[in-house]
Amino acid sequence: MSTVPLLHSMPHRRRAAVGFARLAALSVVVAWLALGGGCSRGSATSGFSPTWTPSATVSASAAPTLSPEQAAARATALAMEPPDPYTPQFTPEGAITAATYFLELVPYVGATGDLDIWQNMSTEDCEFCNGVGSEAAEIHDAGGWTDPWVQEITPLEWWTDQEDPNRYVVRTQVTSEGYTEHPTPSAPSQQVDKFDHELLIQLYWSGNDWAVEALQITNDEDSE
């Protein structure tokens, strides 16, 4: 069968913290590749040795209005190391590795406000990518930050666009512990509950690296 783009809408419900929790609040319309017997598909595996090195971590500089405890927490967040780099490969395993790396960047972006790697992997019209980047920049410009958190990423399967073999979709499971967002030094902290989401990540091979075109939750109760 031919691959037909599907439209999925995610209506605005509430403001959410930087990360996957904000997907339920992000109003987007994205094109997704249809699931079907004629699509090229496979199960996902991982275990690669990345070699590409991202830009340096943002340096810590605590706002003068922070308490000593807050300043220490912010310094810890800003000192967070980026995830291990990867080697771009135009293979199903390469698409899985790139998708996993992109998801691993979410806590790093929220904690440090460093958007260089994130933007380097995002297409200009990726709604989720732009939303996470804008919110992280807004929080950090106001002197806030997000505490680092741990997440488990499990790739499940992949498939390709029959009309353009450079486009892949990777389905993956993301389980995350709860974490705390600090919007500004004067605003109360916000606790984000733990979550377990199944995601679709659409990527495109540009000839030398992968770029994320769209991302959507497939099992979020707030999505329509």
Score class of each variant (00 low, 15 high):
residue 21 A to W: 02
residue 104 E to K: 13
residue 17 A to E: 10
residue 214 A to L: 07
residue 110 G to I: 02
residue 23 L to H: 04
residue 77 A to T: 01
residue 19 G to H: 02
residue 220 D to W: 06
residue 190 Q to A: 07
residue 158 W to T: 04
residue 30 V to Y: 02
residue 74 R to A: 10
residue 130 N to P: 00
residue 21 A to F: 02
residue 25 A to R: 08
residue 167 R to I: 15
residue 81 E to C: 05
residue 118 W to F: 13
residue 170 V to A: 05
residue 217 I to H: 06
residue 95 A to F: 02
residue 155 P to V: 11
residue 117 I to R: 14
residue 214 A to Q: 10
residue 49 S to Q: 14
residue 220 D to A: 14
residue 149 W to F: 12
residue 224 E to A: 13
residue 96 I to W: 08
residue 95 A to M: 11
residue 219 N to K: 07
residue 52 W to P: 04
residue 59 S to G: 11
residue 17 A to R: 02
residue 177 E to P: 00
residue 216 Q to R: 15
residue 150 V to P: 01
residue 85 P to R: 11
residue 163 E to Q: 15
residue 71 A to R: 12
residue 94 G to V: 09
residue 114 D to R: 09
residue 207 G to I: 08
residue 138 E to R: 14
residue 74 R to I: 02
residue 173 Q to S: 11
residue 51 T to R: 12
residue 47 G to L: 06
residue 162 Q to M: 09
residue 222 D to F: 15
residue 117 I to K: 13
residue 19 G to R: 01
residue 61 S to R: 11
residue 103 L to Q: 13
residue 186 S to V: 04
residue 43 S to H: 10
residue 113 G to M: 02
residue 77 A to G: 03
residue 208 N to H: 09
residue 83 P to Q: 08
residue 161 D to Y: 09
residue 158 W to C: 03
residue 57 T to C: 07
residue 34 A to S: 15
residue 181 E to V: 03
residue 152 E to T: 15
residue 100 T to C: 09
residue 68 P to I: 07
residue 43 S to K: 13
residue 175 T to C: 08
residue 190 Q to R: 10
residue 45 T to D: 06
residue 212 V to T: 10
residue 60 A to K: 03
residue 17 A to M: 06
residue 80 M to I: 04
residue 112 T to G: 04
residue 79 A to R: 04
residue 152 E to K: 14
residue 155 P to I: 10
residue 154 T to A: 12
residue 156 L to Q: 14
residue 162 Q to L: 11
residue 49 S to L: 11
residue 184 T to Y: 00
residue 8 H to P: 00
residue 209 D to M: 15
residue 129 C to F: 02
residue 116 D to W: 06
residue 96 I to Q: 06
residue 92 P to I: 09
residue 136 A to C: 09
residue 8 H to V: 13
residue 130 N to S: 12
residue 202 Q to F: 03
residue 55 S to Y: 07
residue 144 G to T: 00
residue 44 A to P: 06
residue 49 S to Y: 10
residue 115 L to W: 02
residue 149 W to P: 00
residue 73 A to K: 14
residue 39 C to K: 05
residue 82 P to M: 08
residue 135 E to K: 12
residue 117 I to D: 12
residue 69 E to W: 01
residue 110 G to F: 00
residue 6 L to D: 04
residue 120 N to S: 15
residue 101 Y to K: 04
residue 48 F to H: 10
residue 191 Q to T: 10
residue 5 P to H: 08
residue 188 P to C: 05
residue 187 A to M: 02
residue 172 T to S: 14
residue 3 T to E: 05
residue 166 N to W: 02
residue 114 D to S: 08
residue 222 D to H: 14
residue 163 E to I: 09
residue 168 Y to L: 09
residue 13 R to Y: 11
residue 34 A to F: 01
residue 128 F to M: 10
residue 172 T to M: 14
residue 212 V to H: 03
residue 188 P to I: 04
residue 94 G to H: 06
residue 170 V to Y: 03
residue 30 V to M: 06
residue 106 V to G: 03
residue 196 D to H: 14
residue 182 H to F: 09
residue 223 S to D: 12
residue 113 G to W: 01
residue 133 G to P: 02
residue 97 T to P: 01
residue 98 A to I: 07
residue 15 R to I: 04
